[in-house]
Structure formats: structure tokens, C-alpha cells
Design a protein around this nucleic acid. Structure first.
Lengths: 238, 238
DNA sequence: TGAATGATTTTTATCGATAGAACTAGAATG
DNA sequence: CATTCTAGTTCTATCGATAAAAATCATTCA
């Protein structure tokens, strides 16, 4: 065991809020992540440093640092001596991903139902309401409302979990981002064939009634249905 | 939505195995991780680039890349314009961490019990056997056998999960590393007061009997007991 | 014609250098 | 004597340059 001599600082950052990091690395990390999840950078794309340098207008160092973080997130693959690529999409992996996602989301949901307070209930009601309204807009055909719906959908699902473990939430978020990328990669064809409004309403209902069993079953079905739709699409393309 | 023009490569790395990456960044990442988990780099320590450069004998670029990855792993904290520090230990966070850990481990265990085949059963039996033997050695006082025990303990717990989701396993591993760091930070005082051999034996037994309920309960208790011990220690120090 | 081989180009991984931000300690002030 | 200000120092974030590895392409040989 090597010991290099300590120099411990208990608290480097006191209590200030996030304050949107100003380092280029951080900025670049966020932009890249956004572009990967949204599909602007297509799955499998080779990410040549020179090219990215021009696009994002920064030096290679910050870029590589951002890419390393993304590769820890699983959004980018680093191949030894062959640079980086956007993580490819793959049906088998999606199945795997979705299994993990459901497990973790249900865990978080269960803990929330047990621990959630009044504020949490209010949050669920509010988020459900907002999503339902956005749902109506999308139904009526406004194309650009999709991004908005996506945001509110995420918010709704986020509102369900008042889970006390930040680590669990972090895992949940990580998987959520992965799934979102798959979801976005496929057109939302399934939308028409499903009654999402009703699905969301029932979930909210069960959650508020603190019916753990039912809430978990409904949420799992909800995710599974989305996954099935995506799988069909992914496979029909391959 | 920005689209920068695609250039998709389906498969950059064919099917070769990991083959221990030869980039400095990767090497450095592993060494640092090891040192952080083992406690050689104490929690809260400021990681000055200049200093680390000398210690690990590489340039600042590779170092920073490794540190960025570690910060995505949660083992290192990056503070804007103030560099990096080893993530501090904290009783509250440990509680949080442990909650997540138990949830995910139980999920993986449940899936394994349902899906595991004969090979998996054999693996459990073998790992249990080896751990039990190592346990005996530690009891008889050999100090350097602790590292060995730690390794076999990890292997035993790893053998339990033949879970089909690699993503879930990844989350499990990530949390496992975090917990290990906490565990190592405290001396193994509790060992004497517990009958770990018996705990492990019972877990293996329940798992092999495919008794989901019982296996989960035992494993949760196992982890909770470890956690309680650590918490007592952490708090008595603060 | 097709495969093998070698030369050329591209790209990655890495280093050293540097501007500017943060920390420190000592001087000046109330 | 405590506090604030300030000059100097340290350290981070970032860039451009470069050696070496991989990819590409042209060319030769069977």
C-alpha cells in the first residue's frame, strides 16, 4: 500500500449552488451530451478530435476531457489508440438497458411511496396536470411541441420519485438518459397506438393512493410498452 | 437541432477482448482509482496536478483526463477553477449510498435467482467455499490475508449475480466500489463481533434453494449490518 | 484481376508552455 | 490587536506542437 502523505482539505466548496460551471470542459461536456442524446451526433459516428475542435471551437485538451467523462457515462466509447465514437445503438443492449432501468426506477418508486410527504404528492399532481396539457397539444399536431412534451414527460416521471437516496437517483438519471437517446432515435410512431394520457393518469393515481404494488406494475408496463415499440423499430431497421 | 453531417462507422472495435488498454490515461485512471479505493489517497485530499505529475510520472493532460473520468465515477470531485479532490467520506452520504446499493444488489440477485443456470450454481458453491477457507486464515491472524479476503469476498458476492442485465451489473459495480472505499477506511473491527462465515453460508444456501424472499432478506441484513458498523465508526471519529 | 506490400497521409496521445484565476502572507490601517 | 488591502506566488485551464500509431492509397507481383 503506497502512501504519498496526506494533505486533507475538509471542504473545498462550501455551500454555494452549482452556478453553471464555467470551464470549457464542462460546457463542452454538456453540449456534446445534448447532441448525442438528441441524435444530432448519430450513433456510431467517429468523433475525430480535429473535426470537433472546429465545430465546438475549442482546443483538443478540453475536448478530450469532455469525451472521457462521456465515456464514463457510457454515451461515448473510447477505443484504445483509435479515438472516440458515439456509442452505437443496439437492440440487445437496449433490452439489457431497459431491464436495469425498470429495476432501478421501481426501487426508487417504492422508496418514494413509503417516504414521500405532502409536498411530493403535490408535485406529482402538478406534473401530471402539466403533462396532460402538453399531451393535448401534441395530439393536435403541433410539431415543435414534441421537445416540450419530452421535457414534461421527464419531469412527470421525475416527480414520482422523492426517493431519499441521491445515489439511486443518480443511477436512475444515467439510465434515463440512455433510454431517452434510444427513444429519440426512433420516430414516435407508437404514440398514436397508445393512450399515454391514460397510462400516465393511472400511474399518478396509484402512486397517490400509495398502492405500491399497483404503481410498480403500471410503471413497469408503461416502460415495457415503450421498449417493445422501440425494439420493433430498431429491428425493422437493422 | 444541430446536425453536423454523419459519418457512421458501425463497428470500430470488432470482437477482441479488453486487452488492458495501453494509453497512459487508462493506466493512470486505474492506478488512481486503486489508490483512492484502498485509501492510499485519503478522502478529502486535494489532488494538485503538479504533485500528481511527479508521483505518477506523466504529463498534465493524461492526468486530467483520468481525473475527469474518476469524477464521473464519483470518486473524485472537480471544483470549478479549484482543481480536484478525493471525494470526502461522509456518514450521511454513506447511508444514502448503502440504500442504493442494497436496492440494486437485491434487484440483481432476484433476476439471477430466476435466470441462473447450473454453471451459476456451481460458481456460487465454489466462491462460497473459497471464501470460507480464506475466512479461516484471517481468523487465525495472518494480517496480509486481509487483502486476499477482500478479493474473495468481492468474488463471492459477484458470483451470486448471474443477472442478465449488464447495465444493472455496471451500476452494481460502481456502488460496490464506493462502499468498498468506506469499508476499507474503517478498520475491520466488527469482524470479531460477527459471524461472517455463517452469514455467507446462509446466503449461499438460500440462493441455491432459489428462495428469493429469504435470500434477499439475508443479503439486505448482511449489508445493513456492515453499514451499521461503519456508521458507528464514522460517527465516533467525526 | 486480385492480393500483398510499402509509401503517404491522417489522427491520436501526449508534452511543454502560458495566461490568468485563486490562495497566502505580510503590510497598512482603524 | 484584529481586520482589510495588496503584492507575490502557486496552481489550474487551456493551447499549440510533435512523435508515433493507424488508416489509406498506390503500386507491384502472382
Amino acid at each position: 500500500m503506497t502512501d504519498y502523505g496526506a494533505e486533507v482539505t475538509t471542504d473545498l466548496v462550501s455551500s454555494s449552488e452549482p452556478a453553471l460551471e464555467q470551464t470549457l470542459t464542462e460546457t463542452c461536456y454538456r453540449r456534446l451530451k445534448q447532441d448525442i442524446i438528441s441524435g444530432a451526433r448519430p450513433p456510431g459516428e467517429r468523433m475525430r478530435i480535429e473535426k470537433l475542435k472546429a465545430i465546438y471551437g475549442i482546443g483538443p485538451t478540453s475536448l478530450r476531457e469532455a469525451l472521457q467523462r462521456l465515456s464514463a457515462d457510457g454515451l461515448v466509447r473510447a477505443v484504445e489508440r483509435r479515438g472516440f465514437q458515439v456509442a452505437p445503438l443496439d437492440a440487445a443492449e437496449f433490452l439489457d438497458l431497459n431491464t436495469a432501468r425498470i429495476e432501478i426506477d421501481l426501487s426508487a418508486l417504492r422508496l418514494s411511496i413509503r417516504a414521500g410527504d405532502g409536498g411530493w404528492e403535490g408535485g406529482v399532481v402538478a406534473a401530471a396536470y402539466r403533462l396532460e396539457k402538453a399531451d393535448g397539444l401534441v395530439q393536435s399536431g403541433a410539431q415543435e411541441s414534441l421537445d416540450d412534451w419530452e421535457r414534461l414527460n421527464k419531469l412527470f416521471h421525475r416527480s414520482l420519485v422523492a426517493c431519499p437516496s441521491r445515489w439511486l437517483l443518480r443511477m436512475r438519471e444515467m439510465l434515463g438518459e440512455q433510454v431517452e437517446r434510444y427513444r429519440r432515435a426512433s420516430v414516435y410512431r407508437e404514440r398514436t397506438e397508445r393512450n399515454l394520457i391514460e397510462e400516465h393518469r393511472q400511474i399518478a393515481e396509484a402512486v397517490l393512493a400509495r398502492d405500491e404494488e399497483r404503481a410498480c406494475r403500471l410503471l413497469a408496463e408503461h416502460y415495457t410498452r415503450t421498449a417493445d415499440g422501440l425494439l420493433t423499430l430498431l429491428r425493422s431497421r437493422a
